[in-house]
Simulated assay, not measured.
Amino acid sequence: MAKKGIDEMSFLDHLEELRWHLIRATLGIVIAASVAAIFYKFIFDVIIFGPTRMSFPTYEGLCKVSEFLGINDTTFCAEEFPFIIQNRTVAGQFSAHVWTSIYAGFIVSFPYVLYQLWSFISPGLKSSERKNSRGFIIIASILFFIGVLFGYYIVTPLSLNFLANYQISVQIENEFDASSVIALVRSSSIASGFVFELPIIIYFLTKIGIVTPQFLRKYRKYALVIVLILSAIITPPDIASQVIVAIPILILYQISIYISAVVVRNQKRKEKNV
């Protein structure tokens, strides 16, 4: 039986098509998560708990910068963190194993998930639109992975270092629950990955006419405030950490303005040619 064309498909046909793309995307995540579950020792000992050791590259780099600036009293040059990690629930380690594997599976299979999403959307686009969006999956995946690395190597160690050394009384010892530490690493990495998708989001919002470069320029100062608030939420409440996180987000916002302007310019050029 021949496959129906996009114009011949009913609403239920579209839902059926979407269902199969979601099934394939989910299957890709499950397969990747299964592989991650097998290599759990490497994922936890090296990746997840990497930022809990002072030998982590971020701490070593910040320690060298501090020494270069003549700052001797810094937590980045300590021998070890003043806390221990404990598991306080019966199924805590099992739950951490399962959910971390799912998160890892999603990150690894992100390009495939995007491919399935794009395979569902692209038939409804014009041939010229598909041609102009040819690099969507590659660019979106690269931005996502850069964001994940930024969250892992910048946001996570800055947050963990601050919270581990924050003390309201000498009578209190830090004994962090394993699920709390793991959640910090996972959420910081995933959230940063999605934040770095801003240029892609702006591209499509401009394509459908919701956003314009004029709008983005007009509300740039408000965007700056939002970025600073976002930085304050996902980082420790010190100016240096907030600036470190805010700078790449502001750069992404500026890139988004340029992308929006290019989209609008191309649309006007096509209208003139028509």
Score class of each variant (00 low, 15 high):
1 M>A: 14
3 K>N: 13
4 K>W: 10
6 I>T: 13
15 L>I: 12
16 E>H: 10
19 R>G: 08
25 A>R: 00
27 L>H: 02
27 L>N: 04
27 L>E: 03
29 I>R: 02
30 V>M: 13
35 V>K: 07
35 V>N: 10
36 A>F: 15
39 F>D: 09
41 K>V: 11
42 F>T: 11
44 F>R: 13
44 F>M: 14
44 F>W: 09
51 P>E: 07
53 R>N: 08
53 R>P: 01
56 F>I: 01
57 P>H: 00
64 K>I: 05
67 E>T: 07
67 E>H: 13
70 G>F: 09
71 I>M: 11
73 D>M: 05
74 T>W: 00
77 C>I: 07
82 P>N: 03
83 F>V: 00
84 I>D: 04
84 I>C: 01
85 I>T: 00
85 I>E: 00
93 Q>K: 10
96 A>Y: 03
100 T>S: 13
102 I>D: 05
108 V>A: 12
110 F>L: 10
110 F>D: 02
114 L>S: 10
119 S>L: 10
120 F>K: 00
123 P>G: 08
128 S>A: 12
134 R>N: 09
135 G>W: 14
136 F>W: 07
136 F>D: 04
136 F>N: 05
137 I>R: 04
146 I>L: 15
152 Y>C: 05
155 V>N: 01
163 L>V: 15
165 N>I: 04
166 Y>D: 09
173 E>Y: 10
177 D>I: 06
178 A>N: 08
179 S>N: 14
186 R>M: 15
188 S>W: 02
189 S>N: 01
189 S>R: 02
196 F>M: 07
198 L>K: 01
202 I>P: 01
208 I>C: 12
208 I>S: 14
208 I>F: 15
212 T>A: 14
216 L>H: 06
219 Y>M: 04
221 K>Q: 13
221 K>G: 05
222 Y>T: 14
225 V>E: 06
228 L>M: 14
229 I>N: 08
229 I>V: 15
233 I>Y: 04
233 I>Q: 08
236 P>Y: 09
238 D>Y: 06
240 A>W: 13
241 S>I: 03
243 V>W: 00
246 A>R: 02
248 P>K: 09
249 I>Y: 06
250 L>N: 03
252 L>A: 10
254 Q>F: 08
258 Y>M: 13
261 A>D: 07
265 R>D: 11
266 N>F: 03
267 Q>Y: 03
268 K>S: 08
270 K>E: 15
